[in-house]
Design a protein around this nucleic acid. Structure first.
Lengths: 134, 134
DNA sequence: ACATAGTATAAGTATATTATTATATACCCC
DNA sequence: GGGGTATATAATAATATACTTATACTATGT
């Protein structure tokens, strides 16, 4: 989930790919049209489109020898908002990928709101009772 | 605008940084706590936090020698949704960064909906009046 | 002032990404 | 099948990123 979400965000986090997305939002375009419009090489377009397709951000419709690319605005929005918000809204203990991290985090939390930092511990000790992180 | 939007998405498009964001959404944490929780080196945390700060995704509050990091859920949501949606909703001709690209695109559009592809043009001629694609 | 905790930065290395050039594949029309 | 178009892939070079180790900086407590 984390890796996949990161992947979608990363796919969009590149200027050339954002431009492709932007023009595809105007209308369906084939690779050679993107080449014309963006004024960049055909392999460069193909490679970026590949990344976008792998992230399921663009659809492809083959007509004759052309590869027409398009985006579904709603799907696109969902591609960003849903994975990210789902990740953010999922409880930490429901994320298997963060099992070890969350265990350490819960230890932190269990320790009556004391930080993991040694200075924090020191301060805590001074002020009375500490049971620390491990 | 495009570069900046790409930058924000890129900052979030990395697993370690997403994890940091996820834990900061639980509560404010300092660098050394993130080190503990994530189980990774301190420079690694500092470096990723730097990227997140540069993208204005986390806030920093210095207390004693600690650097407490936090995120504002709303700001975070906006950091993703607003830049991206603004980009998507802004008319092509209002994006100075895409001036050249858009001029070529409008040429395409002006040509009675014919594609830039040579094959597309050929088809147009042959079929007399195919309103191609879109 | 000294020792220590917390954080930041520098240097180095390994890997990944981007872009270019050249080439291969697929498809269409004649 | 030959010629041409559209796209994909391979090889390569340039650059960027992520991570580690070592070190510097800053603040704090004694």
């Amino acid at each position: 989930m984390i890796d996949q979400t990161a992947n979608v965000l990363k796919a969009l986090g590149e200027p050339t790919r954002l431009k492709i997305i932007k023009f595809l939002s105007a209308r369906e375009l084939c690779v050679c049209e993107l080449v014309e419009v963006l004024g960049i090489s055909q392999p460069r377009v193909s490679q970026h489109v590949k990344v976008l397709k792998q992230a399921s951000l663009v659809n492809e419709r083959k007509v004759r020898q052309n590869s027409y690319l398009s985006i579904d605005e709603a799907v696109l929005k969902d591609a960003i908002i849903i994975p990210f918000q789902t990740l953010m809204q999922t409880r930490l203990d429901k994320l298997p990928e963060l099992k070890a991290e969350n265990q350490r985090f819960e230890l932190l939390e269990a320790n009556t709101a004391v930080t993991a930092c040694k200075e924090g511990n020191k301060r805590k000790k001074f002020s009375g009772n500490s049971n620390q992180i491990a």
